[in-house]
Computed example of a mutant assay.
Amino acid sequence: MSQVRDRLPPWLAVPWARLLQARAADRLPHALLLSGPAGVGKRALLERFARALLCAAPDAEGQACGRCAECVLLAAGNHPDLVRVGPDPESKSGDIPIAAIRTLCAGEALTPSRVERRVVLIDPADHLNAAAANALLKTLEEPVGRTLLCLVAEHPERLPAPIRSRCQQLRIALPAEAEALAWLRGRLPDEQAALALRLAHGAPLAALDRLDPERLEARAQRLQGFIALARGERAPLAEAAAWNKLGAALLLEWMAGWLCDLLRLGASATPPRLDNPDQREALAALASRLDPVAAHRFFRRVLEARTQCEGSVNVQLLLESLAIEWRELAVSGRAASA
């Protein structure tokens, strides 16, 4: 069965119905901002809707038929009325530059060529640099005919307020844990589904990637290094080098989860929830020796570092700083509790 015809996850049924109703009533906005956590399925939803809009013969459920000439072009990635705008692959910043928006808005780029509507996917829209955002705002203020601008973002708050105000916003929330587990258990062994969902912070689509054996082994090694730092048994610069080799974004995601669990275990020996339930014993032993106030401060520092890594910061120096701070925090906390 093709991706177009696959059944939507149940938590996407309501936003899908809203999109179909707007199309049926001919009340689609000229700009749509679709947001939500990574791994919740917002991109899959938007891709499906774009194909349905461009299909020449959508079925009774509003889905693309998968057989018409438009669907054939879509499947080949060659449909001229589906336009994608994203970061410059040659740039290290990960930003969407102004040149991409100027190209989009120039000439006939916003005018449909084969069907009655052109769909533009701007993803991730929260990576528009300031100049690109200003250029896009001018287009939003003067919408073009039958073009639907679709902005996708994990962090819509990073978009300028005038852009957000000119888009119809649709937020996809994390599903309830029971609903997500029911869906995952059709795709993962029962005993693994709950752990995968916790490691993905409740995002079901992301959970499918969390049980890769190499990824789990890397996580275990880095947690051992994290704990060894806290015990004064590991050199901060050596551990920071291992963090950088793994990738700062993934490492800081894991570290934020470890710290959350340490704070939970410091407050209660039996917290109602852990992000890393398979590592409870190792984390509990460390939690008893941490100063909670200092641990909270360091947790905020890690969250700030996750944002900084998306910019032009020297990642190696940032990770080295974090490793030194963590060792000092943990060793001083251990000394105080001795």
Rank of each mutant, 00 (worst) to 15 (best):
R7G: 04
L246G: 13
R264D: 00
F226L: 15
Q192G: 07
A193L: 02
A135W: 09
A194R: 11
P37A: 15
C71Y: 03
L263C: 01
L159Q: 09
R231L: 15
P29A: 05
N276F: 14
R234E: 15
E108T: 12
A194H: 13
A60K: 14
V313H: 04
D278I: 03
F299E: 02
A269W: 00
T147E: 08
L28H: 03
A287Q: 00
P124S: 03
A248F: 12
A206N: 10
L223Y: 10
I122Q: 04
L149H: 07
P80T: 08
W254T: 05
P236I: 04
D209M: 09
N78P: 00
S91A: 15
T111A: 10
A56M: 08
G247A: 02
W326K: 05
E281V: 05
R171C: 11
R48T: 08
H296T: 13
C68E: 09
L318W: 11
P160H: 08
R297T: 14
C65V: 05
R264G: 00
A323T: 03
D209I: 03
W16K: 00
D275K: 01
L110F: 12
A133F: 10
R219A: 08
L8T: 13
N314T: 08
I98H: 07
I324S: 02
R7W: 09
L329K: 07
A135D: 05
R118C: 06
A206M: 12
P97T: 00
K138F: 05
Q63W: 15
N134A: 11
E47N: 08
P97Y: 12
E47R: 15
D190R: 13
L82E: 11
G225M: 04
A203E: 08
R280A: 02
A64L: 11
L208A: 01
L259Y: 04
N129L: 05
I172Y: 09
R234K: 14
K42E: 12
C65W: 12
W254C: 05
T270Y: 00
E61T: 13
G232I: 01
P143Q: 07
A238I: 11
P9M: 05
Q192F: 06
P37M: 07
T139M: 03
L19C: 01
P175W: 04
E233W: 07
L32K: 07
M255Q: 15
A13L: 08
D212E: 15
L263T: 01
S288E: 12
I227W: 06
A75T: 10
L223W: 12
E253S: 14
V40T: 15
S35R: 09
I227E: 11
R219P: 06
A153I: 09
C150G: 03
L216C: 14
L53G: 01
L322R: 10
